[in-house]
C-alpha cells in the first residue's frame, strides 16, 4: 500500500483532515494536499557554500515521493507550506529535468507556494506565491503563531521518540491539538526536532497527539518531558 493512502483521520475546526504516513496532509473534501519543508536543492546549497559534496539526489527523491503522493491522492489544489527550497538560489538552480518534473506536478492544479524562512519572496516558478493561505475555517502558514487557532503550519520538523521496551524509535511526525496541526518535514535531507523541545512543548496543548510517519501512520500522545521537570534543552528553532 502506498504510504500516502495510510492515514490518521482527525478534525480541525470542523475540517475533516488526514495525516498521511508519507508526511502529507490531505483534506479530501477540498481536494487539497499540503506538504511542508521540502528543502529542495539542499545538497547544492551546501556545496555552493564550500561545504561537503553530499549525494546530489535528494531533490529527485523528494519530487519522486511527492509525485507518488499526488498520483495516489489526485488533489486539485496543493499547498507547499514554506521552506520548499533550501534558499532562493536553490530554486533557480534546479536542473532542467527537475524543472520539467516539477512543472508536470503543477500542471492542472492550483498550486500555492507559501513562503518560509528559507525561501521568502516570490519564486521564478509557476504557481502562486503567498505569505499565507486561508481556506474555509483554516489558515495555512509556515511558522505557527502561539495565539492562532485553526492553523496548519510546518517549520519545526517535529519528530517523536517512542520507547519499545529497551529499544527506541524516532520518526518524523505530525503534531495535532484542538487549535493547530504542525506538519513533519517532507524533504529527504531534513532532520527533526524532538517533541520534548521547548519550542514545540510550549506551542501544543497538553492533550496534543503525535502521528508518526513511515510505512503506517500511528497516533500517540505527544511525547513530553515528565511533569514538574522544566524543559532543559535549549534549541532555537
Amino acid at each position: 500500500m502506498h504510504p500516502g493512502m495510510n492515514a490518521h483521520a482527525f478534525t480541525l475546526s470542523g475540517a475533516r483532515l488526514r495525516a498521511c504516513a508519507s508526511g502529507a496532509l490531505h483534506w479530501p473534501e477540498r481536494g487539497l494536499v499540503v506538504v511542508s519543508d521540502l528543502h529542495l536543492g539542499r545538497a547544492e546549497r551546501m556545496a555552493r557554500r564550500g561545504g561537503p559534496l553530499l549525494p546530489p539526489y535528494e531533490t529527485d527523491d523528494t519530487l519522486a515521493r511527492l509525485a507518488a503522493d499526488l498520483a495516489a491522492l489526485r488533489p486539485a489544489h496543493v499547498i507547499a507550506l514554506g521552506d520548499s527550497f533550501d534558499d532562493r538560489r536553490a530554486a533557480e538552480g534546479l536542473s532542467e529535468p527537475q524543472r520539467a518534473r516539477l512543472a508536470a506536478l503543477l500542471d492542472g492544479r492550483v498550486w500555492d507556494w507559501v513562503e518560509g524562512n528559507h525561501d521568502p519572496g516570490p519564486l521564478a516558478l509557476p504557481g502562486t506565491h503567498r505569505a499565507e493561505v486561508r481556506l474555509g475555517p483554516l489558515t495555512f502558514r509556515h511558522i505557527a503563531r502561539p495565539d492562532a487557532t485553526a492553523e496548519v503550519s510546518g517549520h519545526y520538523h517535529p519528530k517523536a521518540r517512542l520507547a519499545l521496551g529497551a529499544a527506541r524509535v524516532a520518526r518524523a511526525c505530525f503534531l495535532i491539538d484542538g487549535a493547530r496541526v504542525i506538519l513533519p518535514a517532507y524533504g529527504t535531507y531534513t532532520g527533526g526536532l524532538a517533541t520534548e523541545a521547548e519550542a514545540l512543548a510550549g506551542l501544543m496543548a497538553p492533550d496534543a497527539i503525535a502521528v508518526l510517519t513511515g510505512t503506517r501512520a500511528h497516533a500517540i500522545p505527544m511525547p513530553r518531558r515528565a511533569a514538574r521537570r522544566p524543559p532543559t534543552r535549549r534549541i532555537s528553532p
Partner: peptide
C-alpha cells in the same frame, strides 16, 4: 539547530 542537521543514515539510503 537540530532540525537543520540530519542523520548520515539518510545519505546512506539515498546513495
Amino acid at each position: 539547530p537540530r532540525q537543520a542537521t540530519f542523520s548520515s543514515d539518510i545519505l546512506y539510503d539515498t546513495l
